[in-house]
Amino acid sequence: MTMGQTILRVENIHKELGGKAILNGVSLSVRKGEIKVLIGPSGAGKSTFLQSINFLVMPDQGRVWLEEKPINPTDKKALYEYRQQVGMIFQDFNLFDHLTALANVEIGLIRVKGMKKNVARGRAMDELERVGLKNQVLQYPAQLSGGQKQRVSIARALAMDPKVMLLDEPTSALDPELIGEVHSVIRDLAIRGMTMLMVTHQIRFARSLASEIVFMENGRILEKGPPEKMLSDAECSRTREFCSKINEMSGHLC
């Protein structure tokens, strides 16, 4: 696959929380159509890293570029503009609980993009249909299964026409039976060429999609490389140890 221009570039992100260094200078870049998967033990800083990319967590240090344009997070308007272009998927979905599936997808289009209601509705319906939820559009989050909720949240992010998607363990809060439906939606995104940065421990899934696997520990990137190499023959012994463990686990699961 030929890769295009760099979509997202993050340099030297540092973050301290409660006197403890969570991120110690993390740098990464993602090119158009590329899918990078972040793995690492819990507490490695993966979630904090994803959240500092779109400044949901304000990094103490570090810079971010979208399509080679530097982002200044203190400029509120520019920040809101930037966040619209970076779709984010959370582990626990974070659907707006008081809104139907349809309204969850519409609300950003109406309130943030200023789209007309009927236009937004059409777009939201399209996105929900694409994730296979045509028949659930009027249901509230409390009436949906975990897998359906996550698919709504993907539709909500896609409706904003993001240039890159950040996915923070999109299936780790799901029953094993529901993981598949979310994976197939993400796989569909990959086929359509969506640029993604994803934290996941679904290693088979990662192996089949990722252009690169990035191993993080203690707020640092220890090693990165193509999935085959990372998962079977990593250079760093710590990476090897971690990968062999999750390989073992996925062997049981799949």
Binding site: R83, D92, V112
Partner: peptide, 19 residues
């Protein structure tokens, strides 16, 4: 998470609060 999700979509603080 409700706040994070709204911010991630590009909602300003005020819009997040109101919507």
């Amino acid at each position: 998470g409700q706040l994070l999700a709204a911010h991630a979509l590009g909602f300003s603080r005020t819009k997040t609060l109101l919507s």
